[in-house]
Design a binder for these strands. Structure first.
Length: 608
DNA sequence: TTAGGGTTAG
């Protein structure tokens, strides 16, 4: 068998898409070189692609030298391969040099350069290059070329044609992606509308992924509907973006529908799609379905393991997260920084203090993973929540990284939890220096004072907040019913069914009182009269969403609510009561974790 | 030879 047949075989089978097989192809290439066999141009291009995909910089550079020194036809194909290699390993100036040195640049070379510029954040330059290319039906270009032809100047006609290749669908897709990646959705959409009949599934995938990257999850789902209307066949990549949108929205019904679509249409569930499914199920409250997908996967990589560990952590299954971590080790997969975020988070949410300390201390020494600010953040949270406020503060003081607002914010919450206003004030001061516009910091300090009935301080905090011009992010909860996501903002009555919800909320309040529930008004920002405080708390968004869920679904049906902020103590207590009174399982995802309410209890064991 | 997808601390 010739080298070419072997390497081509690898290439066509998709074998090279897997990083684990990279060593095989490189070994093969080395053997070929040692056998004094001169690689063909096709093989060189292929090896360059490998070097680009897996960032094997030294070999790529060696290839460049070899190409230069030997008698290769240093043509547009090899040059484009080199350009792409340099761009993908992060060396834009070398990529530019290769591009500038090209005597002839075709559409592929231009596209590769658009992509290179975009990857390095030079969208304006990418747009200029894109604009310099001809439009397929451009009257100006066509008439110029025709003119030269008519006067018999074929060389000039050819020159214009060659120097300004016609944009193809790849050019459009690369440019749309460039705008999406910098968050400029309006320019991306404008281009998307102009693509015309060449638009393909990748164009749709790029736009849908762009919506997801810009956190426009509903627009991503709507775009998918349009894609279906236009009868463009979705691919695995479409599904990954849609599942990510569902995960963020907590749209389990839609996520399940997508899973069904994947199975029905026999789409290939690889590690990326598998991971998207695991993440969707986990973030939509169904950890059992997430584990089911995980165990059925044929190929699992570190993303899949991390998603499962993080998922278990969010659902409060600390010991199970540790078990999966141990299994991962047994399978020979090395943990990375994300694994340790999951693991430490699991210890934190389950109160596993000594396990958390052990894993944190072993990160570097045993696993060779350097702790980042996020790992110190987890530890400050773990210690703080356990009431070890002094130790948490000490860790912040001695840590080798500059503490950020997240780290201080975590300690402030612990000060609130363990009612330490003195330390809370100090911490807030640090927080306001770091992030003076974050209203959440004032709210936490204010709530800390309120929980101690220090109303003057609450008032001072409120005034400070007004003077600084900061605003609290409004609490927002959503619930999915019949494939539609309903959103409720605290105190907002704009939902068309609000009158009925309101009646139901009054009914809930009465039943709660009958069952002995006492409102905890410490979670209200202002010092107002008790009765008013109680009303204000009962209009928190999660309470409205739960009420809407109760009145709109049949008895016994599980209710799932997603909240953008952490749930307050009072709503947490009230929902525990509600789960018992109405005999419903209520699953709530707040900004921090999942709460599974059942029969008056919560899976977080009131520790969150 | 060029374009699209995944996990992460408050």
């Amino acid at each position: 068998m010739t080298w070419k047949v072997m390497i081509d075989g690898y290439s066509k089978s998709g074998y090279l898409r897997n990083a684990d097989n990279l060593r095989d192809i490189l070994t093969l290439y080395n053997e070929m070189r040692c056998s004094d066999v001169c690689p063909s141009q096709n093989i060189l291009s292929l090896i360059l692609q490998c070097c680009a995909s897996f960032c094997v910089t030294p070999l790529g550079k060696t290839l460049h030298c070899q190409i230069f020194k030997s008698n290769f036809n240093y043509d547009v194909v090899l040059q484009t391969g080199l350009l792409d290699f340099y761009a993908k390993v992060g060396d834009l100036s070398s990529a530019k040099r290769v591009f500038d040195e090209m005597s002839h640049r075709d559409v592929v070379a231009n596209n590769a350069m658009i992509s290179a510029l975009s990857k390095h954040g030079f969208v304006k330059d990418a747009q200029n290059l894109f604009d310099s290319m001809q439009d397929k039906n451009s009257v100006t270009w066509n008439s110029m070329i025709t003119c030269y032809y008519k006067i018999g100047d074929i060389d000039s006609a050819r020159l214009i044609f060659d120097c300004n290749p016609i944009k193809d669908v790849v050019s459009w897709n690369a440019m749309i992606d460039a705008y999406c990646k910098v968050g400029n959705l309006s320019c991306a959409e404008e281009l998307f509308d102009r693509v015309g009949e060449v638009k393909n599934s990748i164009t749709w995938n790029t736009m849908i992924a762009g919506f997801v990257q810009c956190k426009e999850f509903r627009r991503a789902l709507r775009s998918f509907e349009h894609m279906q209307t236009e009868r463009v066949k979705p691919t695995e990549v479409t599904m990954v973006s849609l599942l990510s949108a569902c995960a963020h929205l907590g749209a389990l019904d839609m996520g399940e529908w997508i899973h069904g679509y994947i199975n029905k249409n026999k789409l290939r569930i690889d590690a990326v799609l598998g991971n998207a499914l695991i993440d969707m199920y986990s973030k939509c409250g169904s950890i059992a379905a997430a584990l089911d997908v995980f165990h059925k996967l044929h190929v699992k990589n570190i993303y899949c393991w991390n998603s499962v560990i993080v998922g278990l952590a969010m659902h409060g299954y600390g010991n199970e997260a540790i078990d999966y971590f141990l299994s991962m080790e047994k399978e020979g997969i090395n943990p990375d920084g994300v694994t340790f975020v999951g693991l430490l988070c699991a210890c934190c949410h389950s109160g596993l203090i000594s396990a958390g300390r052990n894993y944190f201390s072993q990160m570097q020494s045993v696993y060779g993973v350097e702790p980042g600010i996020e790992h110190f953040g987890c530890m400050v949270d773990l210690l703080g929540r356990s009431g070890l406020l002094v130790e948490a503060l000490e860790l912040i003081t001695i840590m080798p990284l500059k503490p950020n607002a997240v780290v201080w914010g975590s300690l402030l919450r612990s000060c609130h939890l363990h009612k330490d206003p003195e330390l809370g004030e100090q911490v807030t001061q640090r927080l306001l220096e770091l992030d003076p516009k974050d209203g959440g910091n004032y709210v936490f300090l204010s709530n800390l004072y309120a929980s101690l009935s220090r109303w003057k301080d609450v008032d001072r905090c409120r005034k400070l907040m007004i003077e600084s011009g900061v605003q609290k992010v409004p609490g927002c909860s959503s619930i999915e019913l019949d494939n539609a996501v309903h959103e409720f903002v605290a105190g907002d009555s704009s939902h068309p069914q609000f009158p009925q919800i309101n009646v139901f909320l009054v009914d809930i309040a009465k039943k709660l009182k009958d069952q002995g529930y006492e409102p905890d008004t410490g979670s209200v920002l202002h010092d107002i009269y008790d009765e008013e405080k109680e009303t204000s708390v009962s209009y928190h968004s999660e309470r409205i969403a739960v009420a809407f869920g109760l009145m709109s679904t049949p008895p016994g049906k599980q209710i799932r609510v997603i909240k953008n902020l952490r749930t307050c103590n009072d709503c947490h207590t009230a929902i525990k009561f509600i789960s018992k009174i109405y005999k419903r399982d209520i699953i709530m995802r707040d900004r921090n974790r999942f709460h599974h309410f059942r029969n008056g209890l919560c899976s977080c064991k009131d520790y969150w």
